[in-house]
Design a binder for these strands. Structure first.
Lengths: 244, 244
DNA sequence: CCAAAAGTGTTAGACGTACACCCATGG
DNA sequence: CCATGGGTGTACGTCTAACACTTTTGG
């Protein structure tokens, strides 16, 4: 791997996570300081992205970026849209930011958007030099570059995938309860479901498998735990597309 | 417009058309001749694409390419996927083709795929220097570069759009019969529908509007003509997603 | 024994699917 | 009058949506 990057091509990854009852997204703080490093000019948030390398294809670049940030590989990672407006890096803050690098980014950069799903509890974020945190998707505003737009489009695709591919199960921990699953669907789709009807639907999804195990130490009736069988899902996905 | 193109970024347009009962795609002949121009080294087919210009965004590049080829603007034109494998231009024929241009394309080119829909009868193809024709999507094989793969992915998106956005109506002429519409859906989705059930569905789509007009000069009972009201479609699309 | 979330069935209406015959026209 | 595609209704089964109470645990 040469690590010589292509100046006008990047990949941005929208890493979604789910935690208790909120849909989260993993973001990096971008802080511009004065040259003496004493004062902050501005500070905002950006998606995790980087230029692609000359000898690396798009999917690998996305996988590398996610791996570097979370330490995880083998995530669901899917390309959803490519952004190439002429003005995508033209906000005043973005220009200041680029000046820091001697203006090497002055031309238009086309970025390929990928999204990734994982239970937010799975991640040990190990970054010394950058502040990386989970943010609730509802609370993020005024991100760097055109990243609000990219997040918006990623959300749209996530909602679609959740309804057509049942892929949202990637956002849950390995063992989960049906209530957690329902809260995930409600958080992502922004609706609410009837508990009984939701469970009837799930009962038809034979890739959601009950375990011989229940919750422990909860101050109420312990719930049945389930797992997602990727295997059964792959074998039966064609017979029937599942919707909630 | 500077017309200085970006060497590692292109747009490829998959232009779908529908004609009687076949789904077609507009392709360009790519013929490599020996330097004395007397003999043909090889000849195959490619999608219509070109590099983007430095001062042009992706959507505009796609619109320009379609306009140059068909003379039409204001088409449905939608980005569907971006292709950036390292080996996408590595087939022996593709290498020979590039050598013709003194190898300027020797690095990896990332291409953004767009698809476009129109009734194939609407197009007057006006190209002196290139052979451009409609081909049935079922009959095309061994296209240039990775264009088979791009067409495959475009087809997938077309099928999806047809079922979820009723956008396939763009493929029909301004006035059409319900049988034509049914043949379109059958050709694109590769299935067949019961005539009565299909018509019941269409009856629920209030953006498919009956005209005060019938077919003329057909050797059978003349069919009611319909039009697609983009206006009604836009106003009602949120209330209910339509599927066939 | 209280609070908290888990778990469970029925009914009415909408929708999907299967199926066969008569109609209007041009030649 | 024949060939061709246009046009129509019904019945059955499945899916959706609305709705309320009992259970099990920890504190």
């Amino acid at each position: 791997m040469s690590h010589k990057w292509v100046p006008n091509l990047s990949v941005d990854c929208v890493i979604f996570g789910f935690d208790a009852d909120q849909l989260k997204v993993l973001l990096v703080e971008r802080t511009l300081r004065t040259t003496d490093k004493k004062n902050i000019v501005f500070s905002d948030l950006s998606l995790t992205g980087y230029h692609i390398y000359e000898d690396e294809d798009l999917d690998s670049a996305a996988a590398r970026i996610v791996k570097d940030l979370t330490g995880l590989d083998k995530l669901v990672l899917e390309q959803f849209y490519t952004f190439g407006s002429l003005d995508r890096l033209e906000h005043p803050n973005d220009k200041l930011w680029h000046e820091q690098f001697g203006d090497v980014f002055s031309h238009r950069v086309v970025t390929v958007g990928y999204f990734s799903l994982l239970p937010s509890t799975k991640v040990k974020i190990a970054q010394k030099d950058r502040v990386v945190r989970w943010y609730s998707v509802n609370e993020v505003q005024n991100m760097a570059f055109d990243h609000n737009q990219i997040l918006e489009k990623a959300l749209f695709h996530l909602r679609y995938k959740l309804q057509h591919d049942a892929i949202g199960l990637e956002l849950l921990p390995d063992k989960f309860t049906l209530s957690q699953m329902q809260r995930l669907y409600e958080a992502v789709l922004g609706t609410s479901f009837d508990k009984r009807n939701f469970r009837k639907k799930v009962a038809q999804m034979n890739f959601v498998v009950p375990l011989k195990e229940k919750q422990h130490g909860v101050p109420h009736k312990p719930a049945q735990l389930y797992m997602f069988s990727r295997d059964i899902f792959m074998r039966t996905r064609k017979e029937r597309p599942y919707f909630i």
